[in-house]
Nucleic acid binder design. Sequence first.
DNA 1: AAATGACCAAATTCGTCATTTGGTTCAGTC
DNA 2: GACTGAACCAAATGACGAATTTGGTCATTT
Lengths: 235, 235
Amino acid sequence: MAVLAEQESGSAARILGAARELVLKRGVKGLTVAEIADRAHVAKGTIYLHWSTREDLLVGLFGRDFLAEHDELAELLTADPDVARPSRLLPLLVQATIDHPFIRALQSEDDDLLGVLTQHPRSAKLLENLGPAALLRVALPVWRRHHLARTDWSFDDQAYALQALLLGFLNTAVERRALAIISVDEPAQVISAAVTALLGPEQPGPGDIQATADAALAELAVRRAALLESIAKSD
Amino acid sequence: MAVLAEQESGSAARILGAARELVLKRGVKGLTVAEIADRAHVAKGTIYLHWSTREDLLVGLFGRDFLAEHDELAELLTADPDVARPSRLLPLLVQATIDHPFIRALQSEDDDLLGVLTQHPRSAKLLENLGPAALLRVALPVWRRHHLARTDWSFDDQAYALQALLLGFLNTAVERRALAIISVDEPAQVISAAVTALLGPEQPGPGDIQATADAALAELAVRRAALLESIAKSD
DNA sequence: AAATGACCAAATTCGTCATTTGGTTCAGTC
DNA sequence: GACTGAACCAAATGACGAATTTGGTCATTT
């Protein structure tokens, strides 16, 4: 059974906390394991009891952001199945991306913060499996099946358009480009409206919402397990 | 009266051509004026008869791409005012961005191709005034006024959503990110459909289309003049 | 008037090497 | 068995001077 390092050791938790603070403050570049150990009040060697490599620790950092995002979404979906509607899920997704620094940094390819890690194969894998495009691939068919998206549009075209919209919102919300001049107070509402405009009015029959939420939760569980496996201690 | 260097000198045209080829092939980094002069079959000094600085020449290079784009759009609009419809203009805009290497590179902040020029204040200025956001600021009010976009949506929200959609399409079409997995055969049609979904059905009254096209042409003329001024010979 | 190319100062590159840094290990302590 | 920290060593750094390159100028030529 996969188990996270911090669940069985207080020092591992302190190391993670210290690493998180330091990376957020100064970035990966030039951050040494000695510094992390110092701030966590452990010796350098201790770090290697929990992670086999410096990079493992760092990748684990934003793996944990994804994990937290998954858990939050699962909680919301359980409490209120209505969250599974596209007009509610996509704004949440954008907000979640903004809220989690590492996901945000990965999304915007923030080299200052993440250093070479951005283009590292392992983090690329993370994004490929957990990124917005992968999500749409899974979610859109479910939405179409349960009358939460119009079906008078070919799947590929619809997915392409929705992907563009989502990436566009992510870019304008996350990145600080000079290009994106227009901004707005309540992005969530705009995203919601735009998604509805694209996918058409949501017309769920009885049970459709719950079924969609269940499918979403199942998918989240699968991803969570895979994610956990990839950042857990390899015994 | 602003006049482009290549309009009054054959050697200037050859220099531009040589520079263009070389930049597209190998990027700005490490490209010397001696090389450009060699390929253009002129002496180094000749280049400085037309441009006061190496950087002037390079900025002029993608200034000319914008100029070409403007001229193409103006021609299309003149031949067929219908092109001024949002559902036709935005796909064209995306396509134009793809077709012009320097605009594309500027959009995707391609450091390999453009080197430090990407984040240079002068090219930033170019993008700020000619980029997609600036365009929407001008175009959307016209569309709304002439029944080519729904007005039951606040201007800011609508602009924000449309901007996100446009940037999203630009990103997926231009950039080669691993994120954007979903792709499609005929992006133009998808863009068109997505724009229509966002802005609502176009319901122009008599004269609306022509008025929109005229406004677009007027705006293009203003931009073209400013652009020309900024890359023309400073006499 | 248009074009050239030798010329120069400033910047960049190169090669070399002593020094430091920093990820990882492991023998030993608590 | 959790933890330490001294020790190891491959890789990075930086100093530094020499050699080369290169953006820009200008007297001269065509």
